[in-house]
């Protein structure tokens, strides 16, 4: 399976959802996404349950620990484990964050890269190495950031340069675009419209936590807010409809509430499809 066959609206898989998903109607969701680092090296119940879910839905992988922008060496052992995992579960798409989460050891949190030429070359070179070792194209995600390290480029400019130099795809997280807009006084619509549409292969939406009027934290712990739904429409207008995932990692509500949000994605996808067809 390749990602061009992936479509529709998906849901982030948390262990706490596994029981409810076993009983959910298959047609309510088009795919599931999981963090492979949360499943690697597990035995017993988990791989069996995951395989059962994989019989019903494509399993997309969204990595956490590869640390693409890190000054530390790439973790070859982790890459090999990931490669095996993707083969075992026939993973159609793998993405990682355009950031770093380690520097002289892991921090288990996503830190923002400075938007500089040096960082473009560094991270693009590592993305190329990853794609070679995995023997597949990967997508990188625009992250939420709470500060901008001193740099010389804008975020969209930085991302475009990385995509071109690394020859990789983009996972566009519209919640992160919104969060960054508030946190740094930037325009998320202009950000989205500056990205290369043909490289956007996959989209994330999520909720966030409003810590202050000028500080949003990307918690994935709340429902998606209306301005983010609007940005999803902007993204579809710009790129065309793309497979889109609802991320929800904390404060998990009952599954029907999440499925209602998945349904909102589908609704926007139908609207976006009509608009795109009308413009074509």
């Amino acid at each position: 399976m390749e990602h061009r066959h992936l479509q529709g609206a998906g849901l982030g898989l948390r262990r706490a959802l596994m029981g409810a998903l076993a009983d959910a109607p298959t047609a309510a969701i088009d795919f599931l996404e999981l963090a492979p680092e949360n499943w690697l090296g597990l035995g017993g119940y988990y791989p069996r349950a995951l395989a059962a879910l994989g019989e019903r839905w494509p399993l997309v992988c969204h990595g956490l620990s590869l640390s693409l922008g890190s000054p530390d060496p790439l973790d070859g052992a982790l890459l090999d484990q990931l490669k095996g995992f993707f083969q075992r579960y026939e993973v159609p798409l793998y993405s990682e964050h355009l950031s770093y989460c380690s520097a002289d050891g892991h921090l288990y949190d996503l830190l923002p890269l400075p938007f500089t030429e040096e960082a473009v070359h560094h991270v693009a070179g590592r993305i190329r190495q990853v794609q070679e070792r995995l023997e597949r194209r990967i997508a990188v995600e625009n992250i939420s950031a709470y500060l901008r390290p001193p740099g010389t480029l804008g975020e969209a400019e930085f991302i475009c340069a990385v995509l071109a130099e690394a020859d990789c795809d983009l996972l566009l997280d519209v919640n992160n675009a919104y969060v960054n807009g508030v946190n740094h006084g930037e325009d998320p619509v202009a950000f989205i419209r500056a990205l290369p549409p043909e490289r956007v292969v996959y989209i994330h939406v999520a909720g966030h936590y409003r810590e202050a009027t000028d500080l949003l934290i990307d918690t994935h712990g709340a429902a998606v807010v209306d301005p983010v739904w609007s940005l999803l429409g902007v993204a579809y207008d710009h790129c065309g409809v793309r497979p889109t995932l609802l991320e929800r990692d904390f404060n998990l509500p009952p599954l029907p509430q999440l499925l209602a949000e998945v349904e909102t994605i589908r609704h926007l996808q139908r609207q976006g499809g009509w608009r795109h067809a009308a413009c074509a």
Binding site: P71, L111, L113, P149, P150
Partner: peptide
């Protein structure tokens, strides 16, 4: 514009501050 530190130096500084 602020001076831009060398990439790795800035990353180690940030990470070390978070750790300690």
């Amino acid at each position: 514009m602020q001076p831009v530190p060398e990439l790795a130096a800035g990353q180690f500084a940030f990470a070390n501050h978070l750790r300690d």
